[in-house]
Amino acid sequence: MSAEPRALLYAIERELKVLSWWESSPPSAEALASTEPFCLDTLSFPQWLQFVLIPRMQALIDAGSPLPTRISIYPMATESFRQLAEDTRALEEAIARLDEALSGQPVSREP
C-alpha cells in the first residue's frame, strides 16, 4: 500500500475539521442504522465520513482485521461536494488516496 490507512483516515478527519464540518454530537442511532449506501437518506456525506467510515475503518485497523479492497468513495465525494462554495480539494484528495491505498488501483481525479 502506498500510504498507511490510519494516516489517510486522520487526513480525512483533519480536512473535515478545516472545513468546519466536524461535528461534536453524533447523529441519532436511527440515522446511523440506515441501510442506504453512504446513509444518503439520513446523513450528509461529511457526517457519513465522520460517523461511519472513519470509526469503522479505525475499528478494523485496531482489530488487525482485513481492510476492504473494493472501495470507491472518491466518486461520491466529488458528486457530494460539486455544488459547494467551500474548497474541498484537499478533502477529496485524501479520500482519493484512501481509495487508492485500499484498492491498489489509481483513482481518476476530476479536472
Rank of each mutant, 00 (worst) to 15 (best):
S20C: 05
A33W: 01
A29D: 15
T35A: 12
S28V: 04
L102D: 09
D41T: 12
S28R: 09
A7Y: 02
Y74K: 07
I71L: 15
S65H: 04
V52E: 08
R70F: 09
A94E: 07
E36L: 13
E13A: 10
A96K: 08
W22H: 09
L98R: 04
R14N: 10
R70D: 15
T35L: 12
E110F: 07
F45I: 00
D99R: 04
S20N: 14
L49D: 07
V18Q: 04
E86T: 13
W21S: 09
F51I: 00
S2C: 00
M57K: 04
Y74T: 08
I61V: 11
Q83Y: 12
Q50A: 09
A3D: 14
E36N: 09
P68K: 10
S72K: 11
S108Y: 03
A101N: 06
S103H: 07
P27D: 09
L91E: 06
L40P: 00
P55G: 01
F81S: 14
F38C: 06
E30W: 10
T78P: 00
S44Y: 00
S72F: 07
L49G: 05
P37L: 09
T42Y: 03
E15P: 07
A59G: 12
A31M: 08
G104C: 10
S25M: 11
R70I: 12
A101C: 10
Q47G: 06
A77C: 15
E36T: 14
A96L: 12
P68F: 08
L98W: 04
A29Y: 03
E110H: 05
M57F: 13
L16V: 07
A63H: 07
R6I: 01
P26G: 10
D41Y: 03
Q47D: 05
E4I: 06
A90W: 01
R97A: 14
D41M: 00
S34V: 10
E93S: 13
Y74S: 12
L43I: 02
L16K: 07
A96W: 09
R109Q: 11
P55W: 04
E93H: 11
E36Y: 13
A90P: 00
F45N: 01
F51P: 03
G104Q: 05
E86Q: 14
C39V: 01
Q50T: 06
R109C: 03
R89T: 14
A85F: 10
L49K: 05
D41I: 04
R109N: 03
S108G: 10
R56G: 06
A59K: 14
P55S: 04
R109W: 12
S24Q: 15
A7K: 13
Y10V: 02
T35F: 01
P75R: 04
R56M: 02
A59V: 02
Q47P: 02
T35N: 08
A85E: 15
P27I: 03
R82N: 05
A96F: 11
F81Y: 15
P26D: 02
L32I: 09
D62W: 00
S65T: 03
A33M: 04
